[in-house]
């Protein structure tokens, strides 16, 4: 049953990556650049939830709400202030700006909360463990699966079935045509940042409950999620989810056979091998750019 247990751990890791990865892929789809602040937005989500539970005395669902709404607002603010003025400035400039915003967020959070490592305990109703076919699954892990599934389903519906989703996909497909047609492209881009950041906030809370919360946690979370995006096919939402799950499982299998310090290396290896065989990623298309669902 050890194989099944490793699979469970891998899927939990992957589900967390998926929530962050989706935001990368959405922004890439519409603006064609990697929003490297994204992992740090998830970190801010962790601290918002920590504050909501600790200082404000709220329950977990309310804390998730605070993190999700707070991160959505933060994501929109970053787009409006840091990226929109640079929209015609080529690809390198917003990338450098993103790194600057990352450092700003990390240092601001460290200034307010300090560098100490924090944790928040799951509420009692998630503290239990169930045994599924010999594998242990904790309440928190079930919550992570459920929250990820619901969040990805809501996102799929929003992008695939609503007027806003059509406008987002039109803007991602052909920005100039969307402008000429009268599509409110600025609003579509803001919406993408809001959606991606809200999911990152959710990921921050879930990841924080499973592990620890520090001002620098966004870096490694962001890198893993970005690897998942490339693995799945950049610009593709289902690709990001599949890539994240594959990466999570690969990392944990690697940790079993070679030791945990190899898990990142295994991730990179899986990524490199996949791209050798399929340069467009698992679910990507050869014409990157479109947001696909």
């Amino acid at each position: 049953m050890i194989a099944l247990q490793i699979l469970v751990y891998g899927l939990v890791t992957g589900a967390n990556y998926a929530l962050v990865a989706v935001g990368y892929t959405l922004v890439y789809g519409i603006l064609k650049f990697i929003n490297f602040t994204h992992g740090d937005v998830a970190m801010v989500g962790s601290f918002l939830a920590l504050t909501a539970i600790g200082a404000m005395g709220l329950g977990l669902p309310a804390a998730v709400g605070v993190a999700v709404v707070g991160c959505a607002i933060l994501g929109m603010a970053i787009e409006r202030v840091a990226y929109r003025p640079l929209r015609r400035a080529g690809r390198l400039t917003p990338l450098l700006t993103a790194i600057g915003v990352s450092l700003l967020l990390e240092n601001l959070v460290q200034l307010v909360f300090g560098a100490a490592i924090r944790t928040f305990s799951p509420p009692p109703y998630l503290a239990g463990t169930v045994v599924v076919a010999g594998a242990y699954v904790t309440g928190v892990q079930i919550a992570i699966f459920a929250a990820t599934a619901v969040a990805v389903a809501v996102l799929a519906w929003l992008i695939g079935r609503t007027a806003l989703g059509r406008q987002i996909r039109a803007t991602a497909d052909n920005f100039d045509l969307a402008v000429a047609m009268g599509v409110p492209t600025d609003r579509a881009i803001l919406a993408v940042f809001a959606l991606g950041s809200a999911l990152a906030g959710l990921a921050g809370v879930l990841f924080g409950m499973e592990t620890t919360v520090t001002p620098t946690m966004g870096i490694s979370l962001g890198i893993s999620a970005f690897a998942a995006v490339v693995l799945g096919g950049i610009g593709s939402v289902p690709g990001a989810v599949v890539g994240a799950l594959v990466l999570g499982v690969a990392e944990n299998v690697g940790a079993w056979f070679l030791g945990g310090s190899w898990s990142d290396g295994i991730g990179v290896l899986v990524l490199a091998l996949t791209l050798l065989v399929r340069p467009e990623g698992l679910l990507g298309r050869r014409d990157p750019g479109a947001v696909k669902l």
Binding site: A163, R166, R169, A170, A172, D173, N174, M181, K292
Partner: peptide, 15 residues
Amino acid sequence: FPSLTVLEHLELMRD
């Protein structure tokens, strides 16, 4: 828009 269906093009304009 290559990834939108024919119906979605019409719906996009309708909105």
